[in-house]
Write a protein that binds this DNA or RNA. Structure first.
Lengths: 140, 140
DNA sequence: TTATTCTACTTTCATTATGCAAGTGCCTGT
DNA sequence: ACAGGCACTTGCATAATGAAAGTAGAATAA
């Protein structure tokens, strides 16, 4: 793990966000951690989009360096690592919820469950609170 | 402009969004259209991040093909094109607002004005309505 | 104890995307 | 007619991506 002082193209917040996770894979890893209860390297490899192993390793390292995720050793199996979201990573949830709503609206073949959109339309903030609670409980 | 039927890696809404605008430049163009009242090719080139001309042309074409922006000829000068957001593009505003809020929170050198964050904290929906109204007025 | 399997990566190399610089071609104003 | 503005294109070097195979240490089975 090399430490490098990152130079940003600008300090526009959108550019900052894009430079932090604006590639085709990073947010899919965040998604797996946030909505699919995944935590192991091997689990990320199983997602539909079929990330390759070298890219996954690279992105996990970058996301950890950016402070969005953290890595710990699994107590039950020392050859296994547990990845989880930091608070900085969890704070992406409102943005991801809006991204899901947009994607669900414009992809006619979207995999988004109707119940999700219903909850989004009914009470967005409540939806976020519930999802955060669910994440917390699964961590035990 | 070639028409190609796009194959998606999956129909997860987050993946759909990432495949549509998940590179390092597309959202900066959307940002310029949405928050900075830009509309000409030459104006996008002036942004702080210094996009190069070939990448800009490529992204404008992709965004147009994806239905996020549209291109018309400037009536006052036929050698000039006007780029503007479609409703599909405008619908990205809630997501971008959340992205700005996140970026402003975690970039200590953020260029985000305090007033923006204050308005965001006070009444998010109102902020979005005001921004949309402002965009509409500038189009006249 | 030895062998096999799990798990998380690395490495290699071909393909694709990016980025700089320079060039093209169509208006437009003088 | 000509200079300049405007929206791109083209060429080429460099960087990122992706598929496949390889490595290394811990766990499990024989």
């Amino acid at each position: 793990m090399k430490t490098k002082s990152k130079k940003y193209r600008s300090h526009c917040p959108i550019n900052f966000a894009q430079e932090t996770f604006g590639d085709k894979w990073s947010l899919l890893i965040i998604r797996d951690l946030m909505f699919k209860n995944k935590k192991y390297y091997g689990e990320f490899l199983l997602s539909d989009e079929k990330i390759s192993t070298n890219i996954l390793a690279d992105r996990l390292e970058k996301l950890e360096n950016a402070g969005l995720i953290s890595k710990t050793i699994d107590e039950e199996n020392n050859s296994r690592k547990i990845y989880s979201l930091t608070s900085k990573g969890l704070d992406l949830m409102p943005m991801l919820i809006e991204m899901i709503a947009w994607g669900a609206k414009y992809d006619q073949d979207t995999a988004t469950p109707k119940s999700f959109i219903q909850q989004y339309n009914k009470d967005k903030d409540r939806l976020i609170r519930e999802l955060l609670k669910r994440l917390k409980n699964n961590k035990i």
